[in-house]
Simulated scan of single mutants.
Amino acid sequence: MPATDTEVRLDKVLVIIPTYNEAENVETIVARTRRANPKVDVLVADDNSPDGTGEIADRLASADDHVHVMHRKGKEGLGAAYLAGFHWGLGRGYDVLVEMDADGSHQPEQLPLLLEALKHADMVKGSRYVKGGSVVNWPMHRKLISRGGGMWTRMCLGIGVKDPTGGFNAFRANTLRTIGLDEVASAGYCFQLDMTWRTLKKGLTVAEVPIEFIEREYGHSKMSKDIVVEALLRTTLWGVDYRSGQLKELGHLALERVEQVAGNLKERRRKH
């Protein structure tokens, strides 16, 4: 069932921060998250970073009971890290699970906006492209890829979400249990779209709140051509499947209408 107006327990919030070679950023983003949101827990999901990110996260966890670390075997992609984090959090009874980047592009000071909106939604996206949202210090090619991907997604899938690929997202635990996490196979750029699309297909509500997205100051973006290509291919295939289903439904409705009209005509002839 879609979300109701019932309160979400904000004292059971888990912020999942995937990391791979984020030694320059992880301590700062964890500190900012805890300072701006003292009641939340943080899970650093590290993909065996060779730069020592995992060791820094362990040190942070040893000093703060609200910080936890998941050490993964190797670099398996953003989507796999989030899925592991979701299962970790669901198994420990969290009511809200949040996706947030480690590089500071998602500002933890804006997390309360997402949590407030989640009281009346099943998933909330921090959106760069709704009124009040913005992107800071992005090169033009990144803007074109992001904007173009959103337009292509809306056209293929017929959805109204302005920032379907945005990665600053909050979910109710029941939403994640409903949408079929074990069936998600998407990796990076496409993972966020996959989660949004699955939520919408289940008839659940997706809300967007404006955020200021800031390009990372330290380290390197994990965006690659392969990730973009995967997103385009998967979105196109989902769109073909979705539109085919719509056409089949229209065909069935048209056939039913024809049969109804034919039946009415036959009944009139019988009476006359």
Rank of each mutant, 00 (worst) to 15 (best):
L111V: 08
Y94M: 05
F86K: 07
L111T: 08
V124R: 11
S127P: 01
G104N: 11
Y94N: 00
S127G: 09
V130E: 01
E109M: 05
P108Q: 13
K119Q: 15
W88F: 05
K143M: 10
P108N: 10
H87F: 00
L118S: 06
S105I: 07
A102L: 00
F86M: 10
M123P: 00
W88S: 07
P108G: 10
Q110M: 11
L115F: 05
P112V: 14
L114P: 03
L90Q: 11
D103A: 08
N137S: 15
Y129D: 10
D103V: 08
H106L: 02
A102Q: 02
E109Y: 03
Q110D: 14
Y129P: 02
W88K: 06
Y129V: 06
V130C: 03
K125F: 06
H106G: 12
G89T: 12
W88G: 14
A117P: 02
P139E: 10
R142D: 13
G126Y: 03
G133V: 14
L115R: 13
G133N: 08
G148E: 08
A102T: 02
D101G: 11
S105G: 13
R128K: 12
M123T: 13
K119C: 03
G126N: 07
L113G: 02
M123A: 13
R128T: 14
V136L: 09
D95L: 02
V130T: 15
S134I: 04
P112L: 12
A102D: 09
L114E: 09
V124M: 07
G91Y: 01
G132I: 15
Q107R: 15
R142M: 12
W138A: 13
R92V: 10
D122K: 00
S127A: 13
D122M: 00
W138E: 11
S127T: 15
L97G: 04
D122E: 00
W88D: 11
E109H: 06
L118F: 08
K143F: 05
S146P: 00
Y94S: 02
H87M: 05
K143T: 13
D103S: 06
M123K: 10
G150Q: 01
A121C: 05
A102F: 01
L144A: 13
G89S: 12
H141G: 01
G149F: 03
S105A: 12
G91Q: 03
P139H: 08
P112Y: 02
V96R: 04
W88P: 07
D95R: 15
R142S: 05
D122R: 00
V130N: 03
K143G: 06
S134W: 02
L118M: 09
V98G: 03
S127H: 02
L90A: 07
S146G: 05
K143V: 12
S146D: 15
G132L: 10
P108F: 09
S134D: 14
S146M: 14
G133Q: 12
D122T: 00
L118G: 05
G148W: 04
P139S: 11
V96K: 06
H141A: 05
W88A: 11
L113N: 13
I145R: 12
E99N: 15
I145A: 11
